[in-house]
Design a protein around this nucleic acid. Structure first.
Lengths: 220, 220, 220, 220
DNA sequence: GATGAATGAGGATTCATTCAT
DNA sequence: CATGAATGAATCCTCATTCAT
């Protein structure tokens, strides 16, 4: 007992041998799959270790506590997302960049929808959010940069707009995942419409008709 | 239009507060305030009982288990919401009905934002969701009825659209609550824009001014 | 996890029903006997609960953690000691008061020597010492008051002298307990000699005999 | 008198530091400093290894278990003490020998007071005491030899007297260390008074001045 | 009905120690 | 010999729930 400093949620030690790397991977995958199937309430460190084929002690060599598992999983997902998402900046216009981002988000979310939802959920917990702050900020910056492009109507409060856009993105993809949707394109459209409306992007008439047409045909 | 006036699902007001009624109220309020301040992890039945000034035994007299507390709290919030929300059906058009609903949602959410968020969060848990299914369905029906009005563009899949609209509504109000926003009007605008975009509602310029007027009067 | 305040070591709740009082007594006695026989390393909350014939949960109703058990045990011992020790102040002279105190200490220590030693030991741990500070201070004051009597040579630094006297008292009684001594009188003599020497008290020959006599009668 | 000069029980100095020797030294020093700063509860083999810059495996190469670390540390301290303490036997009288021993003890204790206290503490644990028995016995013999000198009043029970003298010595030096005292001379006086009193040594007034003188010269 | 004492399964975490490389 | 990854028994502690009074 005595004094107990609040343990950081960062990984405790970096694996230095390859077998250790495997161990970490196995632990994370075990945690992911439990989270997916049983949710946070079914997640306990002993089970994770068992499923990963290691002892609890080993788990704790790499993760200081249970929350650190969630953090690591989130970070992993975010890194995967970011790797693809950054390319959005190469898009010529804000609108295409936004579409790109939507597409990436949707793709990621529908890969392991249940996991993604569970993580979205957990990321809301203060203890976790705190740890992910910097990573989240990177997202925020990326999105904000896109929203600041000249072809996107200027927003009253860019910070809030960014937050909201991300919230809508998450809400719709989570809902789709929960529903068991698997087709990406319809979801992308719906997100796109909500965001366009939110941001005040007018569907330019000429473009609109052609795009709408193609959408209609694709949607069938 | 379609429907006129149906009996609400929940009593509009609680009858003369009997002793038992008082106890239940005290317990729920204790649970609510704990949920608000410490979140779900800080909520435990012993603490709730203590804060409510009753014994745990008494708590279990009224609530069969912990989840029942959450369910009751949600139900209570939903009843309060529904009491106001039903009037949306009296609105002449789908658009005004939607605006009305947005307004009610925002108002409710900003009353006790932290509590509302916590409940939104918990309602996602299967165990809870199951209990709330019928109440949620009522919402869903209400919203769907509005979205089916003739002045709102027909949606490809009305079920999904309804879900999505509710998801967006929740996402934006939760985000606002988390941010500490207190002014309703800006939030209502933002939600309105997102939903209009999602639903394909074109903001007809002339209508806009009249809408703004009505909104102002409602906001008083 | 989240935030974890350092729990106080004070009893968690005061028993309000008589059976609860019995429970607390049983827990403390169980802890005492384990401490006596197996020492601190053999002491664990599950074992204490089992030996007390209650569940762990019950133990934790009354003691916030393991250390709180030690604290309670120490406090109990100190209270017992104090009850007798205070009468030392009624003695006419500092020297007789000191003798009186020695006698009380020796008697207490030899009642349950192993327990007393274990507690003396644990009281040294910062976490415990902190909690006992005020109780210890009372001792300190009592002793200091005695050492300040006119028939005891003035000490260079009364604080240090008090500390030292207590340390010697404890050291010799602990050593005696460890050795398995059971006779009080020889131990009292030895302590008395050490303290007299430390304090610079000259054993006035005539007085000595009378003191010896009185001691003998008290010892019966 | 009785004994002249016997070979010390421990090598006076460690031979040429081989690599293994260095490792052992590093481990012990790491353990010592942890013990000093965090006490026994902060001491764990993994930490010791890390602080010593070696792997746990290596630590276990040299020390069969954790207690062996404590034992080694104690043995080391006792060897250092003994190296100086033996010379006490060269003193002409029992009283000067005792003074000499007090002086050595005080000096040792005040070098690393926190460590010394922690070790004194641990040495009380049966598991440790058992291992140290023979080394402790050497102390005991040394002290007993001194107490048996003709200028020291004969004790009722020489075994007990020896024990008690050592206990007082330890108690007062530990208390001083805890208090943060750094000056040796006042502490030596206090110990000396307590022991003289205990042993029945009369402070012969004329002798007193000469003793003070000799003490001063030693203290330089 | 109310009380609050008691329960005990469940889960987090530590750390001495072993062992494959 | 050294390394550091892995082990898992041991312990602490929580909290939903039950039950005697």
């Amino acid at each position: 007992m005595t004094t107990k400093r609040r343990p950081s949620l960062k990984p405790r030690k970096v694996p230095q041998q390859s077998r250790a790397e495997n161990t970490v991977t196995a632990i994370l995958e075990a945690a992911a799959s439990i989270l997916e199937i049983r949710g946070m309430e079914g997640l306990n460190t002993n089970l994770v270790a068992q499923r990963a084929g290691v002892s609890v002690g080993t788990l704790y060599q790499y993760f200081p506590n249970k929350d650190a598992l969630i953090v690591a999983l989130s970070l992993q997902a975010q890194a995967a997302f970011f790797a693809e998402a950054e390319d959005a900046l190469d898009q010529p216009t804000g609108q295409t960049a936004l579409e790109y981002l939507i597409s990436v988000s949707v793709r990621q979310q529908l890969r392991r929808p249940a996991l993604a939802r569970a993580l979205d959920f957990e990321e809301g917990r203060p203890a976790i959010a705190k740890e992910l702050a910097s990573s989240q900020a990177a997202f925020h910056r990326l999105m904000q940069e896109i929203l600041s492009r000249s072809d996107i109507p200027p927003q009253d409060n860019i910070e809030i707009a960014t937050d909201d856009v991300l919230a809508i993105l998450r809400a719709l993809t989570d809902a789709a995942g929960e529903r068991g949707e698997v087709r990406r394109s319809p979801l992308e459209h719906r997100v796109s419409r909500a965001l366009s409306g939110y941001l005040g992007i007018i569907d330019t008439p000429p473009v609109e008709s052609s795009r709408a047409r193609s959408r209609r045909s694709r949607a069938s």
